[in-house]
Simulated assay, not measured.
Amino acid sequence: MSTLDLKTARTVIAAARTHGRSAELKPLTVVVLDAGGHVVAAEREDGASIKRFEIAVGKAHGALALGMGSRAIMARAEQQAFFVAAVTAAVGGSLIPVPGGVLVRDGAGTLLGAVGVTGDTSDHDEAAAVAGIEAAGLTAQVD
């Protein structure tokens, strides 16, 4: 697979939401971006608070912008706060440096895109993203 198509994105979203329901997470918003940062698919569960779409996009977009999962971006922000603030400004604010933004790779290691999840704690958001990616037979990169 060299692109992240709509069918695969829908599989990722469905599995991430299923994980969220089975783990009794708060309502989630899940966004799947292709490698160019374009939205392939997104869903906001009933009861999710406002602006969750933008937060999920920011997690996924930030991962793509820096080539690392948003957990790794958070660690970098703790060490280089000015750098991450500058990057956030450079990308128009679309970078959320907390877990929940996960890069998506195929079996050959090719970058296909990223998934952003928000709605519960950042660790739980990341777990839902990973579950969705793996359910689609792809590889999740959180670091």
Rank of each mutant, 00 (worst) to 15 (best):
A90N: 13
P27M: 12
I13Q: 00
G69W: 06
K51H: 14
V30E: 04
H124A: 15
G101I: 08
L4M: 00
A140T: 09
F83W: 14
A127P: 03
A127T: 02
A136Y: 01
V57G: 00
A15W: 04
D143R: 14
V102H: 04
I13D: 03
V31I: 09
G119I: 02
D5P: 06
K26V: 07
D123E: 15
D46L: 14
A35E: 13
A60D: 01
G119T: 02
Q80Y: 15
A81W: 11
A135V: 06
K59V: 02
A77L: 11
A128P: 00
D46Q: 14
D120E: 15
A75L: 06
P97S: 14
R10L: 12
I73M: 04
V117R: 02
H124C: 11
S94E: 13
G109C: 09
E24P: 00
T8N: 00
F53G: 03
G107Q: 14
A15D: 02
F83A: 14
V87Q: 12
A15V: 01
A65V: 02
L112S: 08
A128E: 07
D5F: 09
L95T: 07
K7Y: 09
V12N: 00
A86V: 11
A42S: 15
G109L: 10
S49R: 15
G132E: 05
G132H: 05
E24V: 13
L95F: 10
A129N: 08
S70R: 02
G36V: 07
A16L: 01
V31H: 01
D120G: 12
A85F: 13
V130S: 03
R10F: 10
A135P: 03
T29S: 12
H38L: 14
A48G: 08
A15K: 06
V57Q: 04
V102Q: 03
G92F: 10
T29H: 07
L28N: 00
M1L: 03
G36N: 10
S2V: 04
D143C: 11
L64H: 05
T29Q: 06
G100P: 06
R105I: 12
A15T: 03
A16K: 05
G47D: 09
T3G: 04
G107A: 15
G119M: 05
Q79M: 13
D120R: 09
G93H: 12
G47I: 00
V40A: 08
S2T: 07
G107E: 13
V39D: 08
R76D: 11
F53E: 02
A72E: 08
H19P: 05
L95E: 06
P27T: 10
V130R: 01
D123Y: 04
A63S: 11
E45T: 05
A42I: 14
V32Y: 04
R17F: 11
A85H: 12
A131N: 05
A86M: 11
T121H: 11
A65E: 01
A136G: 00
A140Y: 05
T3K: 06
I133C: 02
E45D: 11
V98K: 08
L4F: 05
G37Q: 13
G62P: 02
